[in-house]
């Protein structure tokens, strides 16, 4: 059985009904080029007002392009293991974590060793009950809305009305969250510790520990996929 399927996988599958191709496809490349030109114009205009505006715009365009091209989806990395057992996106996300861990730490250590304040420390945030509630809410939300924050933006660009609606309510939810933030901060967040791993393990130790955790999760992801999907393979 499996041998024949291996052989025939290259050949065409016989289907009785004709493909539902209705009309010749339109070539959308000219419109794509117009959008790219628009991106350049906005980038130049904004950069002349403030270089940072132009830079952020350019980075956004690049992130959007990469996200769409690779269908990179943080939601899928958390969701697919639960649904089908596939962990290919999960492993890609772990790879991204590993690369950025190394590079970020190099930059941070560079500042630190020159006696300068370490940049980006505002992203080392307190761990509290609010982190848990926020994580669970966000996790449920991204699965049912079909996209996380970056994924929702990317799908708006792809023309999904559903994600346009979801983006609008993401904004409303953020506003309500901001309104209640004081309460959460006072009740939980102020009591939560912020842990910067190099403070605990040292610079080298922190990188080693984190890469080890990523490697373990990577291995676990492979085993999980084999367990959930591998049974059918032979």
């Amino acid at each position: 059985m499996s041998e024949t399927s291996q052989v025939s996988s290259a050949s065409s599958i016989r289907r009785s009904s004709a493909s539902s191709r209705r009309k010749p496809k339109k070539n959308q490349i000219p419109y794509g080029i117009l959008v790219v030109l628009f991106m350049v114009v906005v980038g130049v205009v904004q950069a002349r007002r403030d270089p940072m505006l132009g830079f952020y715009w350019m980075m956004g365009c690049i992130f959007g392009f990469i996200l769409q091209k690779s269908r990179f989806c943080f939601t899928a990395s958390m969701r697919d293991p639960c649904i089908t057992g596939s962990t290919s996106v999960t492993r890609a996300v772990l790879t991204a974590f590993a690369i950025t861990t190394l590079m970020f730490t190099a930059i941070k250590y560079g500042y630190h060793s020159m006696g300068l304040p370490i940049p980006g420390m505002s992203y080392v945030t307190p761990i509290s009950f609010a982190t848990a509630v926020g994580g669970i809410l966000f996790g449920i939300g991204m699965v049912i809305a079909g996209g996380c924050a970056s994924g929702t933006l990317m799908r708006v660009g792809e023309g999904f009305i559903m994600q346009m609606l979801s983006l609008f309510f993401f904004v409303i939810g953020s506003l309500v969250g901001a309104a209640h933030f004081g309460w959460w901060k006072e009740k939980f967040i102020v009591h939560g510790p912020s842990v910067f791993l190099p403070d605990v393990f040292g610079w080298v130790g922190a990188v080693v520990v984190q890469l080890f955790i990523i490697a373990c999760l990577y291995k676990a992801a492979i085993l999980w996929e084999e367990k959930k999907m591998g049974g059918n393979e032979e």
């Binding site: 399927s5 025939s8 996988s9 191709r21 496809k25 089908t84 596939s86 059918n232 393979e233």
Partner: peptide, 19 residues
């Protein structure tokens, strides 16, 4: 297609229209 290939099924993908 990725899921189906991992299941060992034969898969083909055809772009029938824009998107």
């Amino acid at each position: 297609p990725e899921w189906a290939r991992k299941q060992g099924y034969n898969v083909e993908i055809e772009e029938v229209d824009d998107g």
